[in-house]
Simulated assay, not measured.
Amino acid sequence: MQKASKISVIVTTYNRPDALAAVVEALFAQDDRNFEIIIADDGSSNNTRNCVEELQKRTPVPLLHVWQEDLGFRAARVRNLGTLAASGDYIVFLDGDCIPGRNFVSQHRKLARPGFLVSGSRVLLSPDYTRRLLDQHLDLNGLGWLQRLRLRLAGHFNKFLQTVLVLPDLGRERKRFSWRRIKSCNLAVWRRDLELVNGFDQSFLGWGHEDSDLVVRLFNAGVLRKDGAFATEVYHLWHKENQRDQESSNRAVVLKRAEDRTVQAVTGLRDIDPQEARALA
């Protein structure tokens, strides 16, 4: 069975350098070092650029930074930009406020299988614990099971078992499209499959369902889903909800594409000038 020879972790971010630093520090501590990090920046200010430059001085793996102008919420496009800058054959999308466990890369590598994507899982953190973690630079991955249980009982984690158990790669395949657990904050896709469907669709306006759209188009192209729960959990730092003005219309587009068996993005990977995907100097 083909294995991913190199993994590219694409971390999307926008004007939250403290969270981004916590995420990248956790990537530095991975038990699998055969990967690269691409910071896909949706128009952040110089504070984020300065943060990335400091991280680049001590990174143990290749760390690149791509940036696009701030023209509103354009997560689909910046993920495509990161994909074009990546050199790996297997792409893992991770949000810049989702802290991975130490085995995040190695678990995604174990679950990688041709013909499948992996839709990962997350643990939500409370506002109070998020503030403490960032202010005090707490090490989530250094917590023991009893500390994790206490955090769950205190309401600072919304899950417990997923933070202490890793289940084998059995029964994870999903034979039909489902909205359940589609989160581009933790999503792994073979690069060739992304290229097949023209990547994320940049025609989606506002927040919502550009990740579901990608998954349904991949499904229409013959790529099935695997569930990454109890294997690839990330810790999602609390933040205010994004505006969801376009959510209903975006969902309607996805449902229509599922019905029509749409495969190609209207505007996607092939519509970005490759020169734009060069890393910042």
Rank of each mutant, 00 (worst) to 15 (best):
M1V: 09
A4K: 10
K6I: 03
K6S: 05
I7H: 05
V11S: 00
T12R: 00
L20C: 05
A21K: 15
A22L: 05
V24G: 04
E25K: 15
E25H: 14
L27S: 07
F28G: 13
D31Y: 04
D32I: 03
I37V: 14
I38K: 00
I39L: 09
A40P: 13
D42S: 04
D42A: 03
S44Y: 01
N46S: 09
N47F: 08
E54K: 14
L55T: 08
Q56N: 06
Q56Y: 01
W67N: 07
E69Q: 14
L71T: 12
V78D: 00
L81V: 02
G82A: 05
S87D: 05
G88D: 02
Y90A: 03
F93P: 01
D95C: 08
G96D: 04
G96W: 00
C98Q: 12
I99Q: 06
R102S: 09
V105M: 10
L111R: 14
A112K: 08
A112G: 10
A112S: 15
L117T: 12
L117Y: 14
V123T: 15
T130N: 05
R131L: 06
R132E: 10
D139G: 06
D139M: 04
D139R: 12
N141G: 13
L146Y: 10
L146S: 13
R148L: 06
L151I: 03
L153V: 10
L153C: 12
A154I: 00
A154K: 15
G155F: 10
G155D: 11
F157A: 07
N158K: 13
N158V: 01
N158Y: 01
F160G: 07
Q162P: 14
Q162K: 11
Q162I: 12
V166F: 06
L167G: 05
L170I: 14
S178A: 11
R181N: 12
I182G: 08
I182P: 11
S184Q: 04
C185G: 15
C185D: 10
L187R: 03
W190H: 14
W190E: 11
W190A: 08
R192N: 11
R192M: 04
D193G: 09
D193K: 08
D193L: 04
N198R: 10
G199S: 14
F200C: 10
Q202S: 15
Q202C: 10
F204V: 03
L205Y: 09
G206L: 02
G206K: 05
W207D: 08
G208Y: 03
G208I: 02
G208E: 01
D211P: 15
S212A: 15
N220A: 11
V223F: 11
R225S: 15
A229T: 07
A231N: 09
W238I: 02
H239K: 15
E241C: 03
E241Q: 14
N242M: 12
R244Q: 11
R244S: 09
Q246V: 00
E247V: 10
N250K: 05
A252W: 02
V253E: 08
V254L: 10
L255M: 13
T262K: 12
V263K: 15
L269I: 06
R270M: 04
D271C: 05
A277H: 03
L280W: 06
